[in-house]
């Protein structure tokens, strides 16, 4: 019974993924006939150089970036929710994204205009940004671990996450006041959220790190399930709780930091998608939850990407779209928490 529901859900998510990938190839600010797109993809070329470039260097990288970012943020949210035993945890609400953002801000603003665009061709500059994001996310995660040992309340931990976000944004504004105009501009446009920031040269690093971290999370299925019973039961089942928690938070930090560095601080996806996966599968068993979360995350991010490029007046920032999808789902979950199995 449950297995059929699982295979059905996975199939549906894959079909949706294919449909969204095709839609993202076909639609955009420039109209390219479907036949020509097929010609470009099969290597024949469309005869129009601009179209070739748009498909190969803009739409395909954007599709890959969005799908991977969605999967990464969603798994990040799932791991945070299980680790902190808190269904409303997520990388943005707990301040992990803001922490990564602060790291990015320090690097961008310190380098000022010398970057020549946000994530330039220069390997050194985007590695510096990536490193900044990793450090920032890491610091916030350490703060969260420290507080979670002191405050036992889930709500308080969320509030601490929100306070951390406020603190980081005030530090960023202080930095802005002393930074160059170009640095500030770069930082502000990065903050809108954008799946077009990863170029072909950066793709192997971006995709490589995310895929490795996703594989690592799939290998943590057994201790994740034990943690559903709380730390004492997990220990009784032979789980080394501190070590497991550290591994999970490192995976979370890496996933959030990479996506934040390349795409900006993207909200809601990490919080919402694990719930979509749980509700559609009807389980909190991570063996089924992890693959469904990865696929659903990719789907949602591609949907946001599609909406963002379908505006004739220019690209809509991703962060203007995610709350519209995310907030109703969160409200639904909060209002129905007594009926939803995994809250009980």
């Amino acid at each position: 019974m449950t297995y059929r529901r699982f295979s059905f859900t996975i199939m549906a998510l894959i079909v949706l993924l294919v449909a969204l990938v095709l839609a993202c190839l076909a639609f955009g600010s420039v109209d390219i006939p479907a036949g020509k797109i097929v010609d470009i993809l099969t290597g024949k070329g469309s005869g129009n150089k601009a179209w070739d470039i748009i498909i190969m260097q803009s739409r395909i990288p954007m599709i890959a970036t969005a799908a991977l970012a969605g999967a990464a943020l969603s798994i990040s949210g799932l791991l945070l929710q299980t680790t902190f035993n808190n269904p409303l945890a997520g990388p943005s609400i707990l301040g992990v994204s803001s922490g990564a953002g602060l790291g990015v801000a320090i690097v961008i603003l310190a380098m000022g205009g010398s970057l020549g665009g946000l994530l330039g061709e220069n390997v050194g500059s985007y590695m510096a940004i990536l490193l900044g994001a990793l450090m920032g996310a890491g610091v916030v995660l350490v703060i969260l671990i420290a507080f979670s040992a002191i405050v036992r309340s889930n709500t308080m931990l969320l509030i601490i996450g929100i306070l951390v976000s406020y603190l980081t944004s005030s530090v960023v504004q202080l930095l802005n006041s002393v930074a160059t105009e170009e640095g500030v501009h770069n930082y502000v446009s990065w903050g809108f959220g954008n799946f077009s920031g990863v170029n072909a040269a950066q793709m192997p690093i971006y995709a490589g790190i995310i895929i490795l971290a996703l594989i690592a999370s799939a290998m943590m299925v057994k201790p994740l399930n034990a943690l559903l019973l709380g730390t004492r039961y997990a220990r009784n089942l032979g789980v080394n709780v501190p070590m497991t928690r550290n591994i999970l938070l490192v995976i979370t930090g890496v996933l959030t930091a990479v996506v934040t560095a390349f795409c900006g601080p993207i909200g809601f996806i990490g919080l919402v998608v694990p719930h979509i996966a749980r509700m559609s599968l009807g389980t909190s068993n991570h063996a089924r939850l992890v693959p469904a979360t990865i696929l659903a995350g990719a789907d949602i991010a591609l949907l946001c990407a599609l909406v963002s490029v379908c505006n004739p007046h220019g690209i809509i920032p991703i962060n203007a779209i995610t709350p519209i999808i995310g907030v109703p789902i969160i409200l639904y979950i909060i209002l129905n928490r007594r009926r939803i199995q995994y809250f009980n």
């Binding site: 019973l229 709380g230 039961y233 009784n236 068993n285 199995q341 995994y342």
Partner: peptide, 15 residues
């Protein structure tokens, strides 16, 4: 040692 404690569990959606 097998344990049965009074800890709150988050396993409502498991069978």
């Amino acid at each position: 040692i097998g344990l049965v404690s009074t800890e709150r569990i988050q396993a409502g959606a498991l069978t």
